[in-house]
């Protein structure tokens, strides 16, 4: 299969110290059911480790979950590291507790979309171009 038609490959990670993983786990399962290839990197990920995983997994998307308020420190660091690793084609999604005022700043840094509370799985699946069938890979 060509690169264009393969199932979207998405790395999901909790960055920083917060352990609120309900949302990211629900998203992981929902996107898997919607046909994405999901790699959940787990809790307490350092920016360096996340970017390493994105490269190793040849991901198209990186979904970061932060509910601790540390996003304005951690996300810029991840964007820098992605660029330094030559992974600027990877689209970055952010989920969690993100104040409105920070959203344009994050988008300016290159974040493709910020998903707040109340987001549905189909909304995210559509955004990453999932085809809607569970993925075999």
């Amino acid at each position: 299969m060509s690169h264009l038609t393969r199932a979207p490959r998405i790395v999901l990670a909790k960055v920083g110290l917060d352990g609120h993983d309900r949302g990211v786990k629900v998203v992981a399962r929902g996107l898997r059911d919607a046909g994405c290839h999901v790699i959940y990197a787990g809790l307490w990920q350092q920016p360096e480790a996340v970017v390493q995983t994105v490269g190793d997994e040849d991901a198209d998307w990186l979904g970061i979950s932060i509910l601790s308020g540390a996003h304005m420190t951690l996300v810029p660091r991840i964007m820098e590291l992605l660029e330094a690793a030559g992974l600027e084609h990877v689209q970055v999604l952010l989920g969690g507790i993100i104040p409105d005022d920070d959203v344009p700043k994050l988008q300016e840094l290159g974040v493709a979309r910020v998903f707040g509370p109340g987001t549905s799985i189909p909304e995210i699946a559509k955004f990453v171009g999932a085809v809607g069938e569970p993925s075999d890979d």
């Binding site: 920083g16 110290l17 917060d18 307490w44 350092q46 601790s68 308020g69 540390a70 304005m72 420190t73 951690l74 660091r77």
Partner: peptide
């Protein structure tokens, strides 16, 4: 804050951006 909850000191590099936040 999260560093304290995880038993880390404020000067630990893993706590970047989290000190005194939550």
């Amino acid at each position: 804050d999260l560093p304290t909850l995880m038993g880390l000191d404020s000067d630990d590099p893993r706590c970047l951006g989290e000190v005194g936040r939550l």
